[in-house]
């Protein structure tokens, strides 16, 4: 496994990194955990001319609790998300999903922000981000802007970053009372990409009706797919098995799976239906404090 030749820089400050990124433009790539980028380079599927290694930048490795949001820095590894007490307390869906990202080796190196920026439709994090309504913080020499996740995920391996920008953090709303969620992932083995992944998230109002709903799907469309129609169907209603079955039907109808070695499209559609139903039931039980 011998990648093609490339330049490598390891800046010591964010400012220096942003200067470099502006300089190298399209030829450059940010290296954080490298768990997707380096294998692609070794397989000669990617050949960036210049890697900007951000691992030495200060201040990007922390998870902080700020004004109703949890902020996850660009150097926070998947394994940190799985074990961090702040995440466990205020974003339990992320804590529960983190152990399903790849395998332990990848989780120790790979970063949540890197995965979000990668926009691989088979990546898990963006479904979770779409379900909970996260915000991406992008920084360049021109300054910092926040991008809602639904706008950030543009298409197949395509995000909304502008040239010279990098993701510096992802912000996730804190889960209040009466919320619950689930990430159900069908994979052939640990470390495999999802055959199908379904993220569900519910918040109930005081009367027990659904106040907020998030459903997003992995690996069944050219990008992680937010099922807005199903979410709208749920909001304002009393949760019930019939309602969940209807929402699951919408998710199954909306997704656009393709047939491949992981299974035919009709099968993946059936799993989307099953997992959406199961996920919503599990989210409800958690929101009601039964799980």
């Amino acid at each position: 496994m011998y990648p093609p030749r490339f330049e490598y820089s390891a800046p010591r400050s964010l400012e220096e990194a942003l200067d470099l990124l502006a300089e190298v433009g399209d030829e450059g790539r940010v290296l954080a955990g490298g768990q997707s980028l380096l294998p692609m380079m070794k397989l000669r599927l990617a050949a960036p001319a210049h890697l900007v290694d951000i691992n030495r930048l200060p201040g990007l490795g922390s998870i902080t609790d700020t004004n109703g949001e949890i902020s996850i820095g660009a150097l926070v590894r998947h394994a940190d998300v799985a074990t961090d007490p702040t995440v466990a307390a205020h974003a339990p869906l992320l804590a529960a999903a983190a152990p399903w990202i790849a395998d332990p080796l990848v989780r120790n190196r790979g970063t949540l922000c890197g995965s979000v920026a990668h926009c691989d439709p088979e990546g898990d994090w963006n479904s979770l981000m779409l379900a909970v309504g996260a915000t991406v913080v992008a920084t360049s020499r021109e300054g910092t802007r926040t991008i809602p996740i639904a706008d950030f995920v543009v298409d197949f391996f395509t995000n909304a970053l502008r040239p010279g920008e990098m993701v510096t953090e992802v912000r996730v709303p804190k889960a209040g009372p009466r919320t619950g969620g689930a990430y159900l992932k069908l994979e052939r083995k640990i470390g495999d990409y999802a055959t199908v992944g379904v993220a569900t998230h519910l918040r109930l109002d005081e009367s027990g009706r659904i106040a907020q709903a998030g459903i997003a799907l992995t690996s069944v469309a050219p990008k992680n797919l937010k099922v807005t129609e199903a979410e709208e169907l749920l909001v304002g209603n009393e949760p019930s098995d019939e309602l969940f079955a209807e929402a699951a039907e919408v998710a199954a109808r909306t997704c656009q799976p393709t047939s491949d070695v992981r299974g035919p499209a009709e099968y993946k559609r059936a799993v989307v239906r099953t997992y959406t139903e199961r996920g919503l039931r599990r989210a409800l039980a958690e929101a009601r404090g039964e799980a």
Partner: peptide
């Protein structure tokens, strides 16, 4: 014996691959 093959057998439908 992949999951989609088992699913296909239960549904009684032929699945590929």
């Amino acid at each position: 014996v992949l999951p989609h093959r088992v699913w296909g057998a239960i549904q009684g439908v032929a699945v590929k691959p």
